[in-house]
Simulated scan of single mutants.
Amino acid sequence: MRVSVVIPALNEQDTVAGVVEKCRASVAEEVLVIDPDSTDRTAQRAAGAGATVVPWREVDPRAPWQGKGEALWRGVKAAAGDVVVFIDADVTSLEPWWVDALAAPFDDAAIHLVKADYERTRAGGRVTELTAKPLLRALFPELAHIRQPLAGEYAIRRSTALRLPFVAGYGVEAGLLIDVARAHSPAAIAEARLSPRTHRNRPLTQLGPMADVVAATILSRAGVADCKVSERPAWVDG
């Protein structure tokens, strides 16, 4: 089983090199940094740490949409592994064994998605606790046990990811969680216990729009009228 790490990194020059170095010390055979037109030294520092830097415009000729989901969608296409492990570029508590732990459950052919399970070392997870979890409990109770539904650290079978749509923005994690459960059953989703996670906390002015797209994604998946989200289609039909 080949493992690829995909790191979406927009203007993350201060932390991306450390993330790359930790990922390269894991079981991963390749570490890709997907660069969505960074204007700082993200690409140079990622390459210097040993990553393969992939400008997102080179993956597909279509003009990119803004948002994390777009970077992940293009990253899945660019990856070569059987399993793709997503890691955020701003995590400062990352350890190499996180990648190993997220990839390990795929030895079971019935597992298609693995979400990180961790504690946060400082105030955080506000969108998770106040938006995602209440909506999942109400609309998708079969997924209410997932402790970190919006975790940026998770893994997916590449063959599965290629057959799913990707929400363009920060609703991508919620969308994939629900779509994998629908396609393969909730039992196809596992959790990997990781050590406490530290990352850059965002102000409420940024969290509000994130909560909007997460809520719209969950509501749209539940079939609520007039709740639509922009999403890229699956790379592979069927």
Results as ranks from 00 to 15, higher is better:
9 A>V: 08
200 R>T: 15
200 R>G: 04
57 R>S: 12
12 E>C: 10
216 A>V: 00
102 L>D: 01
10 L>T: 07
202 R>Q: 13
137 R>S: 14
169 G>S: 13
187 A>K: 11
148 Q>A: 13
114 V>L: 02
26 S>N: 03
130 L>R: 15
45 R>A: 10
78 A>R: 04
93 S>T: 14
238 G>N: 13
233 P>Q: 12
162 L>C: 11
225 A>L: 15
23 C>Y: 03
177 L>S: 00
110 A>K: 14
205 T>Q: 11
132 A>L: 02
12 E>Q: 15
49 A>R: 09
182 R>Y: 09
214 V>R: 04
50 G>T: 09
14 D>N: 13
137 R>I: 06
205 T>C: 08
162 L>W: 07
53 V>M: 09
207 L>M: 12
11 N>L: 05
151 A>L: 05
141 P>W: 08
153 E>Y: 06
140 F>K: 00
140 F>M: 03
167 V>L: 03
61 P>I: 00
122 R>C: 11
226 D>N: 14
89 A>M: 06
40 D>Y: 05
184 H>N: 09
218 I>L: 13
198 T>M: 10
179 D>L: 13
208 G>I: 15
141 P>Y: 10
192 A>G: 00
91 V>R: 06
192 A>L: 01
88 D>V: 01
11 N>K: 09
76 V>I: 15
203 P>F: 00
107 D>C: 10
18 G>L: 03
27 V>S: 11
153 E>I: 09
58 E>I: 07
111 I>H: 04
87 I>T: 04
205 T>P: 01
176 L>V: 12
67 G>K: 08
196 P>V: 11
73 W>F: 07
24 R>Q: 12
131 T>R: 08
150 L>N: 08
68 K>R: 12
35 D>N: 14
132 A>F: 04
95 E>P: 01
130 L>V: 11
144 A>E: 10
149 P>T: 03
39 T>E: 15
91 V>K: 02
50 G>N: 07
63 A>I: 10
144 A>Y: 01
6 V>G: 05
226 D>S: 15
27 V>Y: 01
5 V>F: 02
188 A>P: 10
165 P>F: 06
195 S>R: 13
63 A>T: 14
106 F>K: 02
231 E>S: 13
110 A>P: 09
74 R>E: 02
103 A>C: 03
96 P>L: 01
12 E>P: 04
160 T>M: 07
29 E>T: 12
201 N>S: 15
